[in-house]
Nucleic acid binder design. Structure first.
Lengths: 262, 262
DNA sequence: CCTGATACTTTATGGTGTAAAGAGTCAGCG
DNA sequence: CGCTGACTCTTTACACCATAAAGTATCAGG
C-alpha cells in the first residue's frame, strides 16, 4: 500500500489543482514540466506496476537522475497523488438516464472496473486520506449524482455509494493481482491452480469432508468462458456482474423504504 | 501489496498444513520452531504494520540474524502466507442460527471487521492467489455454510459471498489505513482534514458549485460519535453497518428470486 | 557585473530481500 | 572411535530503494 495525502497541504494541494505559480525566478530554466513527470510516472506504473515505480525509473525515462525530480515534486508520495488524480480524469463524469438509474449505475460500475484494470496500480493508493484532487471529487460527484435522482436521502445514499465502491474496487483488485502475479511468476492462474490442487489432494485427503460447502460451491454451475479470457478472470467477471445485481436489488429496497418513510 | 502463494507448492503447502516432517537429520538441532518465527512475525506486523515487517526485524526479536530464518521458511512470501493462515484461526467457525441467517451473517461480518482491524496487515495480503491454508478454507466454509441454509443455489451464492467479503474488507481497509496514516504522520484525521479543507477553500472557491451533490451529502444527517472514537472512524463504522443492511436486502431479494424460480 | 536563487548531478546514508561463503555442531557409518 | 557430510547459524556482499547534503553550472534582478 502506498500512502497518499502525506505532504504539506500548502504545497501539494496547489500542485493537484494546478494553481499557476506566477513568480518569475532566477536560475536556469526548468527543462521539464510537472505534467511530463507525472505522465512518465504513469507510464512506468502502467507498464510495470506500482512496485516498479521508483524515482530512478521515472528519471531515466526523462533523461534525468532521480534527484532532479525533487525540484518539481516534493517527494514520491506527492507524485503518486498527482498520478492518481491525473489518471482519474479518464473516467466519464456523466451518464445517460434513458434506461433509469439502474443502467446508469451499472455502466458507471463497468467503466470503473475497466479503469481499475487499465491502471491497476491505482488500487494500491490508499483511500483513507484521500487525494483531494479535482478528479477524485468529480468521480464521487458522478455516482452520487446518479443515485441522488432516486430520491434517496443523504443518510441512505452514503452507505450505498460506499458499498458500490468497495465492491467494484475489491472485485477489480482480485483480477489485477492475479494478472500481476501471472506476469511476475511467469505462470498462468490455471497452471498455478493445477499445481496446488494436486499437492493439496495429497496433503488434505479429507478436504471434501471438512469443507463440504466449498466443494458444493465449486462443483456447481460454472459456465466456461466464451472467448479466450483466462478461466479465473472469467469467473471473477461473472461473479462481479451477478454481485452488482444483488447489490442493486438492495438499493432498490432502500429506495422503497425511503418512499415509504417520507 | 504483498504477494502470497508464490512459493514452491511442494514446500509451502506442507508447511501451511503442518504436515510433520519425519526424517531425523544430522547437524545441530534447530533452536527455534516455525511457529515461534511466525508468532514473532505476527507480533512485529501487529505492532508496527506490514511495512515494518522485515526478516531482520523478526530475527532480532528471536535473537537471530535475518538469514537464520531461511532454514525454517523458504522466503518472506511464504512467511507471510504462514502468518496469514495462522491469524485466520482466530475467527469463529460457527454461528448460532437462533435469529435466522441474517443475524448470523451480520455477526460474521462484525467479527471479520474487528479481525481486520486487529491485524490490519492481513488486508495487504493479496487475494488473487489465495493462501491455500486450512484456515482460509475454514473461514470461507463458515460464511458459505450460513448462506447455504437460505436455499440459495451455488450460482446465486457465489456473488453474494464475494460482495459481502469485498464490502467488509474494503470498509475495514479504510479505517486501517487511516489509523496507520495517523501513527505514521503523528497527525489525527481530524487535524489532517482541518488543514486540508482550509487550503482547499482557498484554492477551489467554486467547490460548492462544481460538486453540489458532495456538499449535500456531507451536510446532511451526520450523527456525532457517542464515545471517544475518532470522528472519521465513527463515520465509516456507521456507513458500514448501513451498507451491510443494504447488501443483505439484496440477498433477501436473491432468496425470493430463488424460491420463485424453483 | 555581481549576487544569490535555482536546476541538476554526484555522493552518501540507512534501509530492504536474499545469494554465497564460512564456522561450528552433530547423526550415522566404517 | 573417528570421520564425513549434512545441517544451523553468522558474516559478508549485492543490487535496489528514498532522499539528505554537497557541489557545479546557469541565469534574473539589483
Amino acid at each position: 500500500m502506498v500512502f497518499a495525502g502525506q505532504g504539506d497541504p500548502q504545497r501539494s494541494l496547489p500542485l493537484l489543482w494546478r494553481v499557476p505559480s506566477t513568480a518569475s525566478r532566477p536560475g536556469p530554466k526548468q527543462g521539464l514540466t510537472v505534467d511530463e513527470i507525472v505522465d512518465a510516472a504513469i507510464a512506468v506504473a502502467d507498464a510495470s506496476g506500482m512496485a516498479a515505480l521508483s524515482m530512478r525509473a521515472v528519471g531515466d525515462r526523462l533523461g534525468r537522475t532521480a534527484m532532479a525530480l525533487y525540484t518539481y515534486v516534493p517527494n514520491k508520495s506527492d507524485l503518486v497523488d498527482l498520478m492518481y488524480d491525473r489518471t482519474l480524469a479518464e473516467l466519464p463524469t456523466s451518464y445517460a438516464f434513458d434506461g433509469g438509474w439502474r443502467t446508469a449505475v451499472t455502466s458507471w460500475a463497468s467503466d470503473l472496473w475497466e479503469f481499475y484494470l487499465r491502471h491497476s496500480w491505482v488500487l494500491q493508493v490508499s483511500q483513507a486520506r484521500p487525494v483531494l484532487g479535482p478528479n477524485e471529487f468529480s468521480t464521487l460527484e458522478t455516482v452520487a449524482g446518479i443515485l441522488r435522482s432516486t430520491g434517496l436521502s443523504a443518510t441512505r445514499l452514503r452507505p450505498v455509494v460506499s458499498a458500490l465502491t468497495h465492491f467494484v474496487r475489491g472485485s477489480a483488485q482480485v483480477v489485477a493481482e492475479a494478472r500481476e502475479a501471472a506476469t511476475a511468476t511467469g505462470m498462468t492462474d490455471d497452471t498455478w491452480w493445477y499445481a496446488r490442487s494436486a499437492v493439496l489432494e495429497e496433503i488434505a485427503p479429507d478436504f471434501a469432508a471438512r469443507f463440504p460447502t466449498l466443494v458444493w460451491l465449486e462443483s456447481d454451475g460454472n459456465s466456461p468462458p466464451e472467448d479466450d479470457t483466462p478461466y479465473f478472470e472469467h469467473k471473477v467477471r461473472t461473479t462481479f456482474t451477478a454481485g452488482l445485481d444483488v447489490l442493486l436489488d438492495g438499493v432498490e429496497a432502500a429506495i422503497a423504504a425511503e418512499a415509504a418513510s417520507s
